[in-house]
Design a protein around this nucleic acid. Structure first.
Lengths: 350, 350
DNA sequence: AAATCTCTCTAAACCGGTTTGAACGTTCTG
DNA sequence: CAGAACGTTCAAACCGGTTTAGAGAGATTT
């Protein structure tokens, strides 16, 4: 492995000049620069990144820590986000360091990342309502960006979709179609976006004078399996009238509802309406479901790309308040939503 | 940020002693060690990781580069692998650096990772038959482990499933059930495991005197969508008799086949048999498909955990030939496979 | 009591870059 | 032609750790 000093010696120059030549500083003679670049190419010189990091104080890396228990990584949503993030970062020559830690050590690992100087910034995903990771990062004054947000007036950089507007629109659509018994299959209760969606749902129903019983709202992992389980339970009518419509936080849950409907011999679109939020997972297209699914749509991958850009800005000192973006999710109506069945199959509608 | 020198000064000790105390070297007095540990705790001292890396020559990180075009990251299989890998590495206090690069720059990025000393080892995933990344790493003498293998007698460390045995077993099962027209929905042709599976499939059919026309074998992205498209095409009978059984490289493709069967009004398990390889994606359980899917099963996540362990061994100098593991995939028969329809609906069977 | 051995600790070199302050030769200005 | 200004290069300090060689104190041996 060639070092800078060797390269300089080889050229009869000082390390300082060679370093400047390679890094494009203006005070190097043009012929010298060319000589240096040629020689470095020929000797296959690559700067030792650790030495560089130590000298500059910049690592060229950003970090992400996830709970090994919750295991976001197996969540296809999270993963598509990661894809956008890492390509976005790669465009800016930044690497992403990912690390798994058990829940009870999570904050300690954040502390380590922050104060050991191994990364220039952190990405926080899936914030909880009172997120201690965010509190820690703010306290330490460390640059970070968040996918999602914990509230309306926060002091940090974030990218989020307008969960409230999306779920309000979806709920209104169902109500307009005549549905009064609407179930919400939501994600895990401690997540911020889950709360935001739920609040919008409750608000939209209450505004129209509709009461939704608690048993119509579930909090669970957003998977096909859980979607099926909750939908089956609710459709059984065991604890009271069954819902005529389902609002799902993920297309995976919607898949489960579709399966539950098939099992209960209900036709989706007529007997039962379904709307889901579509994060646009490339391997699971709701337009190809049977029937095609009505969704609120916002590509989660785009969020990754956007956050990469914001992370870079944040590292270079941009005011976090200037780095807050919220995008709206489009409501796309397809075949899975239809007018509420007029003859309540359970007597709920008269 | 406290530095080692400051901490040493504060304690009235030399940096050398403090460094030794913190790193557990034996030549430090017991009372001194305790004083040092206490003070470092109190002053919240965290060693600067870049300085540490420069001094030791070890980074405590391993790298992974993926093609931004192929975009492995959106592949749920790859992601579950990543989950296993990063938790396995975290257990050994190693971080994972991930980086995206366009196809034509891929090798350059490998070179950079290798010769800039930013990682101690590399993980290679989804090898191609003649993989230039592997060739480069061998040439450079850099530690790496591979998920999959390019051939039978290779000189590097790998973890792989026995694709040949699995697909031979699956094919044999279909033949035993009377199927003669069997289609293979495979992955992208340049991937090593795709070749291995296909070879086993061809061998198993040829051995039993069955000829499979080329149009029964497809190579494509392993997604629901492509599975649906290829199955629909083959089932249409447009280019000749339709297959009575499908062998899929992924459960996602099987989902597509199930949808195609429904569209063609065929009952899976009687009119049509399906077997898929199941990488055990937590959000997509083939035992819950309708009908439950017959699979060859091997958790891809386990591969990640195993490779983390092997990577660590490899970095510490273990002979790569001692780090080669191949596991067998279990054939699990469920409801999606049944006897071939005796009355060929297309005249193929007499 | 001198010599040897341990134990514990220190000074200084080192890892491989970047960056500051100064010096050099050349050209411009007065 | 002296002096200033400029463009280019260099020596040395620096980033913050680890590690080698060696020093000093006390215990053990002779």
């Amino acid at each position: 492995m060639t070092t800078l000093r060797e390269l300089a010696q080889h050229l009869g120059l000082s390390p300082a000049t060679v370093s400047r030549a390679l890094n494009g500083f203006p005070e190097v003679g043009e012929k010298t620069r060319i000589r240096v670049l040629e020689a470095s190419e020929r000797l296959r010189y690559k700067a030792n990144s650790n030495a560089k990091r130590l000298a500059t104080g910049k690592s060229g890396m950003v970090g992400m820590i996830f709970r090994s228990s919750r295991n976001l990584l197996v969540d296809p949503h999270f993963v598509d986000f990661l894809a956008g993030l890492s390509t976005g970062l790669a465009d800016r020559e930044i690497d992403l360091v990912i690390h798994a830690a058990p829940q009870h050590e999570l904050l300690a690992h954040y502390e380590r990342f922050v104060s050991s100087g191994s990364v220039d910034g952190m990405i926080v995903s899936a914030p909880e309502l009172n997120d201690r990771r965010i509190a820690t990062l703010i306290e330490r004054g460390f640059p970070f960006v968040v996918h999602g947000r914990t509230g309306d007036n926060v002091g940090y950089a974030y990218f989020d979709i307008d969960n409230g507007a999306a779920f309000k629109a979806a709920t209104s659509l169902l109500i307009d179609l005549g549905h009064r018994c609407i179930a919400l299959l939501n994600g895990e209760a401690d997540l911020a976006f889950v709360q935001q969606r739920e609040e919008a749902f409750r608000q939209a129903t209450t505004d129209r004078g509709i009461h939704i019983p608690e048993r119509f709202i579930s909090h669970d992992v957003m998977s096909e399996e859980q979607g099926f389980a909750h939908a089956t339970e609710m459709l059984s009518g065991r604890r009271g009238p069954a819902p005529t419509a389902f609002l799902c936080s993920s297309t995976l849950q919607a898949l489960g509802v579709i399966r539950a409907a098939a099992t209960a011999e209900l036709t989706v679109g007529t007997d039962l309406s379904i709307i889901a939020h579509d994060d646009v997972l490339p391997h699971l297209r709701p337009e190809h479901f049977n029937p095609a699914l009505t969704v609120t749509r916002s590509p989660i991958r785009m969020a990754g790309v956007a956050l990469a850009e914001m992370m870079v800005a944040r590292i270079s000192g941009v005011d976090p308040l200037k780095l807050q973006r919220m995008v709206t999710a489009d409501l796309i109506v397809r075949a899975s939503t239809g007018a509420a069945p007029t003859t309540g199959r359970d007597g709920w509608l008269h």
